[in-house]
Every structure is written in C-alpha cells, then in structure tokens.
C-alpha cells in the first residue's frame, strides 16, 4: 500500500519535476543576462500580469465606465455622459425616503443594506463574543465545540441559502416546531419583516464561527497570570470581564467588527438564493442591485451599475483602510493577530 502510494506520488511528480528541470536552462541564461533584478521580474510577472488584467485594469476602467451611457459592452462604443449616472443615483429630495429619489431601487437597496449591516454586524459580534468567551473556558473537547460553531463557515452560500429555504418554507421544519408548540405557522420567506429577519439570521448562522475563532485566538493570547491575580484579589467575574478581558481584547474586537462590516456591505449570495431579494424589494441589497442593473434586467445599464459599484467601493475602501490601520497597530504592539 505504502509503495503503491509512493509510486503514484512519483508518477505524478515526475512530469512536474521534469518541467521544472526543463525551464531551468533558459532561466539560467535569462539570469546571467539580466541579473537578480531580471529574476525578480520573472517571478513577479505571472501574478502581476493576471492581477493587472483582471483587477487593476478593470478598477481603473470602472471610473471611465461609470461616466458612459448606453447598453454597449465595450468602452470605445459607449458615449460619454459625464456625471449623469451619479446625479441619477444621488438625486433625492429626502434621503430617508427612497420614493422621493430618482432611482428608488438604489435607495431601497442602500437603506436595506444599511439596516442589514447594523443588525447583522451588531448581533453577530455579540454572539461571536459570547461563543468565544464560552469556548475559552476550561472545557473538555474544546476543539470539538469550536468545530461545531465553525462548521457552517465553510459551506457555500448557495448551500446555506437552500438549507434554510428548506427549513423556512411553509411546510418546513420551523413551522412544524411552531405548530408543535401550539403556535400559528408563519410564511417566513414571503413576509417582508420575516424575510429580512431570516436574511440577517441566516447570514449570522453562516459566518459567526469565523469571528468567534478570531476572538478566541485573541482571548487565548491574554496572559493567564492577569486572571490569577484578579482571582487572588477576589474580583467578581463581571468586573474581570470589563476591566481585563474587554480592554485587552479591544483590538481583536475592532478588527472583527470592521471585517464583518466589509463583508456585510457586500452581502449577496446566500440572501439571493434564500429570498431572491423579495418579497418585493424587502431583501434587495446593494450587490444584487448592481448585478441586476448591470447584467440581469431587461433594462440593462452597465454604466449605472458601474457608478453604483464605485459608490459601494468607496465605503469599502474607507472600511479597509481602518482595518489595515488597526491590524498594523496591533502587530506593532506585538499582540493579537
């Protein structure tokens, strides 16, 4: 068995090794011609080429794209319209009321996303925090319990959406449990309020384990002797939490919140599969708006979608800068992540 495995391994590795050996000769020539500077270029080239074509170039083009109109796909075919799309997106008489806006769908998406971000990140941080605190206790089989909470993180959003669609449907498990408890069945996914609540709840279910894990790592980095000292002084557990745990965990907590914010702003996949943005527009979020205006709807308007994505990107840039700043400060202190 062992030798078979080794043989298969050798058979698989042989062409790779041969290829690596084969390109060594031309590379030696390249190396002697250009020196280590040339080699740096060589090693960077594949990644930076892909990166340039599929990330940097589109990023730059996005700005130009957002200032062109029509439905043509390629930039040279698109007429320049200036800031028209931005004006359309931002034209509101009352920013709290989407109906007063020129592009009411966009503002509904903005409002939904803002509400979602606040609720999801707020609740999820609390749940992740409690989970991390509990996992940090003197538990037996801690890695098992950690795995329990982490499990949904790896599931694909489509799978997450379908699992919950199945449970929340009219004759689903949740309504059965309600019925057993003597409650009235609820049409979870076709009720405006419950559909939104489901979007928040399901996305928390799917991601909370990830953040709990980061917080747990932070908790475990807090020196034990601090707690021992507190215990010797007879400090109450609540006080220990507010005075020791929370201040020392603050950097990790901030990183968790900002990371969660960045992801919540872009929420799409699992909610799209779960509710399709409905009922009506009650779970329509920004990324879905961009997707539908850019690709799916009959009145395709790629320029408008590009403008909306730039506005969303601006929010993300601010959040990411905060996050990078935070993690740099953390690593500067030599603690945390």
């Amino acid at each position: 068995m062992g030798s078979l495995k080794r043989n298969i391994g050798a058979a698989l590795a042989a062409p790779v090794t041969a290829a690596a050996a084969l390109i060594d000769k031309p590379l030696r020539a390249w190396q002697s011609a250009t020196g280590t500077g040339g080699m740096a270029t060589f090693f960077l080239a594949p990644n930076m080429l892909i990166f340039g074509i599929f990330v940097l170039f589109p990023l730059v083009v996005n700005f130009v794209y957002s200032m062109t109109g029509g439905t043509a796909l390629f930039l040279p075919d698109r007429p320049f319209v200036g800031a028209e799309h931005y004006e359309r997106l931002l034209d509101c008489t009352d920013y709290t009321d989407p109906r007063s806006c020129k592009d009411d769908q966009f503002w509904i998406a903005v409002r939904n996303t803002a509400l979602f971000v606040v609720l999801q990140v707020g609740l999820m941080t609390v749940v992740a925090m409690i989970t991390a605190l509990i996992l940090n206790r003197d538990l037996r089989a801690r890695s098992f319990w950690r795995a329990v909470f982490f499990f949904p993180v790896l599931l694909s959003p489509v799978v997450v959406g379908l699992i919950w669609r199945w449970i929340l449907q009219r004759e689903g498990l949740l309504n059965f449990m309600l019925y057993e408890l003597g409650g009235e069945p609820v049409v979870w996914l076709t009720d405006r309020f419950w559909a939104f609540a489901a979007a928040v709840g399901v996305s928390i279910w799917a991601h909370v384990g990830f953040y709990a894990l980061i917080l747990l790592a932070g908790l475990q980095a807090i020196p034990r002797d601090l707690y021992e000292a507190a215990e010797m002084d007879g400090t109450r557990p609540g006080r220990v939490f507010w005075r020791i745990t929370l201040p020392l965990l603050a950097p990790n907590l901030l990183v968790v919140i900002v990371l969660a914010l960045i992801r919540a702003v872009q929420i799409f996949d699992e909610v799209y599969v779960l509710t399709g943005g409905g009922p009506g527009t009650s779970t329509l979020f920004l990324t879905q708006y961009i997707y539908e205006v850019g690709f799916a709807s009959l009145l395709r308007n790629p320029g408008l979608a590009a403008a909306a994505s730039i506005l969303m990107g601006a929010v993300l840039v601010v959040l990411t800068l905060i996050q990078l700043n935070l993690s740099r400060r953390n690593s500067g202190k030599g603690g945390g992540r």
Binding site: I53, P58, L59, N62, I290, A305, A306, S309, L316, L324
Partner: peptide, 21 residues
C-alpha cells in the same frame, strides 16, 4: 502597495468592467 490596495477591491466592485475585459 498595489497588492495591498486590491484588498479593498472585492470582485463585486469591478463586476461590470471585469465582465467587459
């Protein structure tokens, strides 16, 4: 810096131009 900058640019922000590329 360039690589770092793209941490800020998730796919959902460049959907439209990436599609045309």
């Amino acid at each position: 810096l360039l690589i770092l900058a793209t941490l800020m640019v998730p796919l959902s922000v460049i959907l439209v131009p990436l599609y045309s590329v």
